[in-house]
């Protein structure tokens, strides 16, 4: 799966101003709603479920990256939002470091394979120093999209 197949381009925030985990999650869910990628009817459901998931175990797996997510029965298409915090947000990450790159994923409960493919696409890139560095440097939505396009074309270095 390619990044641009899951990331909603109208739900990219290169300068996330949220200062807490819960606030960041709400901002990213709202972006997906504004972009009409998900229904506003489930806004509170999504946010509550994603936060609950984080409380069971942080998705801040290290390297300044977090992938808050929820599988929901009432959606058909997997969608993701991206937020980049230049200052970093405390996500209770496994390595204790602040999180800068947040990929929030909402996926259909009945299609667990899609969720795994999305995670694969996200981590194949986020595990690379180059990608993480470029993402942090991207100041505009256009710059982030260009980076995602390059990543999808695998033109980035493998470190």
């Amino acid at each position: 799966m390619k990044l641009l197949e899951l990331i909603v381009t109208n739900a990219i925030e290169p300068n996330l101003e949220a200062t807490t985990r819960d606030e960041a999650i709400a901002v990213l869910v709202d972006q997906l709603i504004t972009a009409k990628a998900v229904s506003a009817d489930f806004r509170d459901d999504f946010i509550k479920a994603i936060i609950k998931r984080e409380k069971r175990g942080s998705t801040g797996f290290g390297h300044g990256v977090a992938v808050p997510h929820v599988k929901h029965a009432d959606i058909d298409t997997l969608v993701a939002a991206v937020g980049v915090s230049k200052d970093g947000i405390d996500f209770n990450a496994l390595d204790g470091n602040p999180v800068h790159s947040i990929f929030l994923i909402i996926s259909p409960e009945q299609k667990p394979e899609e969720h795994l493919e999305a995670m694969e696409a996200v981590f194949s890139n986020l595990s690379q120093d180059t990608f993480r560095r470029f993402l942090l440097q991207a100041d505009t939505v256009e710059a982030v999209i260009t980076l995602l396009e390059e990543a999808d074309a695998s033109t980035l270095g493998n470190n």
């Binding site: 797996f61 290290g62 390297h63 990256v65 394979e113 795994l116 995670m119 694969e120 981590f123 595990s127």
Partner: peptide, 13 residues
Amino acid sequence: KSIMQLMMLAAVR
């Protein structure tokens, strides 16, 4: 030992 790398396996059922 790396969660991120394990997720890159996309190991479905």
